[in-house]
């Protein structure tokens, strides 16, 4: 009897301790997610007309929506353009600043700076690079090669790529920190053992260092994928999705739909699509990497 009482008290105690965190988690994550899912089956309420259940009409609309497919395609291109490039750059930078040399801490700081800069500052810097006619790139183009000025952010062919460049620039430094930490945790004797066995730097990197960085690569890739579907702020400042949706990404389109055109029902549907996509990617990545990563 006594034991059961005590056990029950412990239980209550435990749940009470969990309560504050649970309240916030439910109030701000789970309930909105469920509400969004429910809303995606309702029409958008307008004026006196309340939202009414319309079944999968929103989803049908989505599959027929050319803009949805365009931003989805943009987003895939954006992910493919940013992720390998920023990870590759991060590894190269990490390897570089992991070497013993003078000015190492300065270099580390320099590489990390883009990550800590506020977005407005980043955008301003790149505006200065990209401005047609006066921007750094155009100055170089006309100064060195006598080429005509271009509007990187304003033309549909280059707008998304211009944003990719900015994103890589901002993210590579951040990912570098993770790789640097992993490199520093790696025993030097492994490299020395490989050296004695006759491996050159190239072999050491591909046969030892890179495989041992796999857990970091998994972590960074998952983050990078999620980031690539979460990014909106750069777009607001640099292109506002234009021209003609050429640089709009999925989340940006959701924002526009829900909060510029106030189509909240359709916005909810798009959000559900985004969430489904992200979960699928996360699960897929873990399965894909599983065999290659866990050597312990």
């Amino acid at each position: 009897m006594m034991r059961r009482m005590a056990l029950k008290r412990e239980w209550i105690h435990g749940w009470l301790l969990l309560l504050p965190a649970m309240v916030f988690l439910f109030a701000f994550t789970h309930i909105p997610a469920i509400t969004t899912f429910i809303n995606s089956f309702y029409s958008t309420p307008r004026g006196k007309r309340a939202a009414k259940f319309i079944g999968t009409a929103n989803y049908e609309r989505m599959f027929d929506d050319p803009v949805f497919w365009q931003v989805l395609w943009n987003n895939i291109w954006f992910a493919v353009g940013t992720i390998p490039l920023s990870i590759g750059l991060a590894i190269v930078m990490a390897l570089w600043v992991n070497e013993k040399m003078i000015g190492r801490s300065f270099l580390r700081m320099a590489f990390f700076t883009p990550t800590v800069l506020p977005l407005i500052a980043v955008a301003n810097i790149w505006m200065f690079f990209y401005t047609p006619g006066f921007g750094l790139f155009d100055q170089l183009r006309s100064g060195l090669f006598g080429l005509p000025s271009t509007n990187y952010l304003g033309s549909p062919d280059t707008a998304l790529n211009a944003i990719i460049v900015v994103t890589v620039w901002k993210e590579a430094g951040f990912f570098m920190i993770f790789y640097l930490a992993a490199l520093q945790a790696m025993p030097v004797s492994l490299k020395e053992a490989a050296q004695i066995e006759g491996a050159n730097r190239w072999t050491i990197f591909w046969r030892i260092t890179f495989p041992m960085l796999m857990p970091t690569t998994l972590f960074v890739t998952v983050n990078a994928v999620i980031n690539s579907f979460r990014l909106v702020d750069h777009i607001f400042i640099l292109t506002d999705g234009g021209p003609d949706n050429a640089s709009a990404l999925l989340l940006f389109y959701i924002y526009e739909t829900a909060f510029r055109f106030w189509e909240t029902g359709y916005g909810a549907t798009l959000t559900v699509a985004l969430l489904a996509l992200l979960s699928l990617l996360a699960i897929g990545q873990f399965f894909f990497f599983d065999k290659k990563v866990h050597y312990k």
Partner: peptide, 14 residues
């Protein structure tokens, strides 16, 4: 042209 055994063994974990 030599080989070496380290105190920590330095085996490649992967």
């Amino acid at each position: 042209d030599l080989s070496m055994v380290f105190q920590s063994y330095a085996l490649f974990p992967h």
